[in-house]
């Protein structure tokens, strides 16, 4: 459990780079054959500056891929083994483009104690702002994670 005194606490900024290889690998494993994720020439012909970003690309920069953030939450009392993804929401403001250097800042927006059939659990809401190298807000993310045990 994470004490509610940590509501409002911020983490980061963490730095990431948008890479073509990540876009290609994510699209392939999801089973999406869209050439805009694979072929730079096709993407440019369609009006994109480089490969297009699939909507779930920011997951590469988010909690599950961020060992430093996971460790910080664990220090606050989150049980890493008992974390389940409850909700995920993105708002897209400026396109992510390969080569972008992204700053991610995460904030604990909410902590709620719940009682389930198998015992108490907690819902943590994390809000993350992804900003590019020009200081433009690229994506805002809201995720709800279930903390058990």
């Amino acid at each position: 459990m994470i004490d509610t005194e940590h509501i409002g606490r911020t983490f980061g900024p963490y730095q990431f780079e948008v890479e073509r290889g990540t876009i290609r690998a994510l699209a392939t494993v999801v089973g999406d054959p869209n050439p805009l994720y694979q072929d730079v020439a096709a993407a440019v012909a369609a009006g994109y500056p480089d490969l297009a970003a699939p909507p779930t690309l920011p997951t590469r920069f988010s909690l599950w891929a961020n060992a430093a953030l996971l460790a910080e939450l664990e220090q606050l009392g989150a049980p890493l083994i008992g974390m389940l993804h409850g909700e995920q929401e993105y708002s897209y403001h400026t396109p992510l483009v390969p080569g972008d250097r992204i700053n991610a800042e995460t904030r604990i927006a909410e902590l709620k104690a719940k009682q389930g059939s198998s015992g108490p659990f907690q819902l943590i809401t994390l809000e993350t702002h992804y900003t590019n190298q020009r200081g433009e807000l690229a994506v805002t993310e809201r995720m709800v994670v279930v903390l058990k045990g």
Binding site: L26, V29, V30, G31, D32, N34, L36, Y37, A46, G47, Y48, A52, A53, P54, P55, T56, T59, W64, L84, H85, G86, E87, Q88, E89, Y90, S91, Y92, P95, R142
Partner: peptide
């Protein structure tokens, strides 16, 4: 997120990857 990635294709097949403004799911 793999399942959300599958669902994301519903949006991008309809309008194109650069046209998605918001996307949210509950697991």
């Amino acid at each position: 997120m793999l399942v959300m990635g599958m669902l994301g294709r519903m949006a991008t097949d309809l309008a194109g990857p650069g046209q998605v403004r918001r996307f949210g799911v509950r697991f």
